[in-house]
Design a protein around this nucleic acid. Structure first.
Lengths: 136, 136
DNA sequence: CAGCATCCCCGCAGATACTG
DNA sequence: CAGTATCTGCGGGGATGCTG
């Protein structure tokens, strides 16, 4: 994994290094923060299941405030990850779904979430070892 | 992607839904937050390249304070993702590297970062469309 | 029902100073 | 060099109230 090759090359390390170097708000980082944000993760994973109405999302996720859910959805919509379909009926009905782009992101985020779940036992073992070592 | 199947089944949706439902601090979420945290992401990606000393990491990442870097490294070490090798010399020398577990996490995080980079053009197009639609 | 506006608090992150 | 300890601010995020 060298740093010399340019982006477009099969070596992923180059782009990753470039990504790190430009840490002072390269746009990538911003999108990544949206995608990996506290509520962004949960929204994406939930929408991977099926489209949801606003209140459905709220219930499904659980402890999210209206404000943060709205904010998260707007950010993800603006980034082109989530599609908002507001139907002109009374009472209002708004459906949220993943765009193709959002679907790609959501799958990766879900995979990461599933990974943490699979590896949780290892993590807890490591924590115990760490804490025991400290206590001594 | 149903919610009925149990974990262990090939269907990933079940575990993902379970993950979302238990949003009030299931341990997975906590690990995921460590891994996807502002500096956690950058540390993992950087260490994927090669082991780094503390000050090397600091320079490589750029605008990170000592405090946050220390904090991030301690959290990742406690979770068993990063290995800390403190050599008993003067002046002190501490090398940080990825554990096997950390390597798995780092690769996924890097892939996500690379994805955001590849898809950046789409995101910016979406943003422009969104902003234009709003302005009207 | 979906979402905006406002107020407010506490906790994370930065800055600074000091130590082994 | 690789950290700790302490102070401070400011903004993320919750709670509440109101609108189309």
């Amino acid at each position: 994994m060298t740093v010399s090759t340019l982006e477009g090359a099969p070596d992923a390390g180059a782009a990753a290094a470039k990504y790190v170097v430009g840490a002072e708000m390269c746009p990538y980082r911003l999108v990544l923060e949206h995608v990996t944000s506290r509520w962004g993760v949960l929204v994406l994973i939930q929408l991977l299941d099926r489209p949801h109405r606003f209140s459905e999302l709220r219930r499904a996720i659980g402890r999210v405030s209206e404000k943060m859910l709205t904010q998260t959805l707007q950010t993800l919509e603006r980034d082109g990850l989530v599609h908002r379909d507001a139907k002109p009926v009374i009472p209002p009905r708004v459906d949220y779904s993943l765009t193709d782009l959002g679907h790609e992101a959501a799958r990766q985020v879900r995979d990461l979430a599933l990974w943490t779940e699979r590896r949780m036992a290892d993590v807890e073992r490591a924590r115990k070892a760490y804490d025991d070592a400290k206590r001594s």
